[in-house]
Simulated assay, not measured.
Amino acid sequence: MFRKLIITTFIAILVAKSSNADEIQMSNGSRLIGELIRIEADKVIFSTPFAGTITISQDNVERITTKDPVTLMMKNGTVYRERQIIATEQTMLMKSEDMASVVFDASDIEMVNPEPWKLGEGYQWSARFSVATEAKRGNSDSDEWDLKASSAWLSLKDRYTLKGNIEFEESRGIKTEDNWYLFSKYDRFLEPGSKNYRGAKLSFEYDQFEDIDLRTVLGPHLGRQFSKTQRFKLEMELGPVWVNENYADGAKEDWVGALWFIDASTDIIGFGSTLYFDHDGILKVEEPGETILNAILGIRFPIAGGFETAFEIEYEYDGGAVEGVDKLDTTYNLRLGYSW
């Protein structure tokens, strides 16, 4: 008797909660009760009392019902604010107290409860900081550290980017590596939400052991975001640049080149990992043999709470390196970082 009472009470609680909760009806006929967090990039983020927060492919969703008003962005660009989603046996409609109802299908939804910047309100701020360090004592006595940081402010109209890194290495009290790099870039999309953009970049570089006191690179560019999904992201830029180089021996050189940039990443490996490839190069127009090439191939794994670890292989080639300095540097790094 007591056991039946507990079961009956439990079922009553579930029924009461389900009547005051969001609901998703799947294409296979099953139903999910909980809270709709958002819909974005063809993924439905839904919180359930039995499995926590889950991600569902939008293609598998037949209908959605929400208990509270939400903001919807449709695939045709129309935005509906403070609308409650009501599902019938045949279709779905958006309901508002002072607006006419709108009938639509689940496939018409681009986003639900999008972040403000995706509605043209302000910027999305993202950043990443990481460090690689090594200390050896015994047969060899050396210290090495490498700091990297990047930050971007993105809106539908434009984007600001800042990057920088510092590398230092000392062996038995003698410096063997000392360099830093600072990069800034501004991009303006040809129209809000467009994949194509134009912009300008400015960078400064110092490297004691390549005898570079200061290398300045300045120039405009055209770019395109070919793909922006988590499964595959690809962005490329191309443009002319002016390069000014001041060397440790007092020599100076100015030249014109063509700069290209490739940024690619994918989550195809799984386990929350990201495989990434960053590459840039500057072709010296008058002397192609003095081309500058940089490339980073790495894989990043999340740890917890925004912390992450990554393994990288970095290649740096300077065809115009001074005599006695290797043209190619190869570095292997195990990094620990934090991002948001």
Rank of each mutant, 00 (worst) to 15 (best):
G239E: 06
Y206L: 00
G199Y: 05
L328V: 02
Y197P: 08
N196P: 12
Q230N: 15
A41E: 07
G250V: 01
G272I: 06
K284A: 14
A127R: 13
L328S: 08
Q230I: 00
S107D: 04
L14G: 04
I56M: 02
T330A: 02
V256N: 12
Y181E: 07
R300V: 03
D141C: 09
N165F: 05
D213A: 12
G120S: 04
R81Y: 11
S203N: 06
N113G: 13
S150D: 09
Y315W: 03
P69R: 01
E237R: 05
I262S: 03
A87I: 08
N113S: 12
L259V: 06
N244T: 06
W125N: 03
I292W: 00
A321M: 03
K228D: 08
T266F: 09
F226T: 03
D207I: 01
I6Q: 00
Y186G: 09
F10T: 03
L147H: 08
D98W: 13
L147F: 10
D213N: 15
E97D: 13
R3K: 14
E170F: 05
R224G: 14
S57C: 10
T216P: 08
K67A: 08
W260F: 13
S18R: 10
T78F: 14
E121G: 10
N196E: 14
E314C: 10
R128A: 11
D98A: 15
L218A: 15
K17P: 01
D42G: 14
Y247F: 15
T161E: 11
Y332Q: 00
N246I: 12
I109N: 04
A51F: 06
R224Y: 14
L72W: 00
F232H: 08
R38G: 00
I7W: 10
R198T: 09
R83A: 07
A200W: 10
Q230C: 08
I39N: 07
A21T: 03
A149G: 15
I64Q: 02
F183I: 01
S27H: 11
T91L: 12
Q225A: 15
V44N: 04
T309S: 10
K148E: 05
E134Y: 13
E287F: 14
Q124A: 14
E316H: 13
H279N: 11
M74E: 03
I33G: 13
S140K: 14
A51Y: 11
Q58D: 01
N60F: 12
H221F: 15
A321C: 00
G324P: 01
L14T: 02
F307M: 07
L72Q: 01
N76V: 06
E82L: 09
A304V: 05
S194I: 05
G337F: 10
A16Y: 08
